[in-house]
Design a protein around this nucleic acid. Sequence first.
DNA 1: ATTACTATATTCCGAGTAA
DNA 2: TTTACTCGGAATATAGTAA
Lengths: 218, 218
Amino acid sequence: MNPNLFDFLKKLMIVSNNGSYRGSTLELSKLFGISQQAASLNLINLEKEGFIKRVRERNGQIIYFLEPAYELIYEEFNSLNFILNRQDKLDISGKVFSGLGEGKYYISQENYKNGLKAILGFEPFLGTLNIRISKKELYKMEIIRLKGRKYIPPFEKDGRVFGKVYVYNAELKGEKIGTIIPERTHYTDVLEIVAKDNLRQKFNLKDGDVLEVTVRFD
Amino acid sequence: MNPNLFDFLKKLMIVSNNGSYRGSTLELSKLFGISQQAASLNLINLEKEGFIKRVRERNGQIIYFLEPAYELIYEEFNSLNFILNRQDKLDISGKVFSGLGEGKYYISQENYKNGLKAILGFEPFLGTLNIRISKKELYKMEIIRLKGRKYIPPFEKDGRVFGKVYVYNAELKGEKIGTIIPERTHYTDVLEIVAKDNLRQKFNLKDGDVLEVTVRFD
DNA sequence: ATTACTATATTCCGAGTAA
DNA sequence: TTTACTCGGAATATAGTAA
């Protein structure tokens, strides 16, 4: 979300009571030092994006905050908490699920395999373990993305383009592992795990099992 | 601070390590999905406003975060915490100090006196107790300002203009009191307290004593 | 290589005003 | 009274480019 709109939402939630705000756009404009038109437009956008629900009244409107608004605030809260704790690692948890077996195909490519070995220090098992991150922890995925420093550069092979992937040292159940995040992907809630061994076998994992991974940024 | 610049600072602090970031404006622009020029300009502004200190290097620069940056993040963190806790009251503490006796003059004006009585439900002692809010809790002053609902409208008397003041029900040491914040003032760190009695006498207060006030928003 | 200036493009805001 | 549209101007971002 646009930082200006977020700022407006934040202020709106601060001046609200019991999960709602009753007032007019003129009132809001005066409170926030913006124009009535800007207040109106911001409300329209917030409603369009599903953060608030409005009910018109004689003299103004009632604004109800929907769950996504609180989720957004919570994400931001956690991001700031992360900064204040100046952490060099981050714990994230998710549920095991079966991918389409693409992981094995990709990881078998020489460039990726060698890149992983160089960054992680071990020869990876030819397969990945996927975990899906819950909505509550999605903000951590963004932080992990932003913190990405080590990566395997993109390359071409047999006329196909293989994209840049960020690689992180990590731990799982005391095991040194790696996590991979492709630079361009639409799966923003998936963390791919590589390890020396077949983790699914080693820990007898089933779909739906919850795993906690410690991702390192050094 | 401008929300866009704040957002940039926040992202910068997330991708940093050990209180500093080493890299180029081009790198940052790619990380954040903005232009190199915008990254450069944002850094210039952050440095101008005293949030960062930069050291040029061969290939880029090192960016050090200064204390005001952490303070800013901390303030925002607390504001969001406030939202998430959906409070209808707020505890704020500050140190007693002696004003110039202006409080007595203002509070003696009929309009102010009657307005206070109407909102607070008691006849105020003709004098105010001032407390100065510490930097750490200044963000609460902004929240209180934003939450202001009840006020005494501005008026003119003897050719003088008396401004709008926001009035809040509050508590101090179990006592029902009121706090006043003028709409326009340059003392953003001062909370004025009114009460039925002379609080300074009643509680034997001296300058420097720390008081905790619970401000209500109902 | 960099950063950052200048000029242009785009986005955003607010005044006027219709509904 | 409201909210929210159109439109012009301000603010902001990007492109080009100098240092």
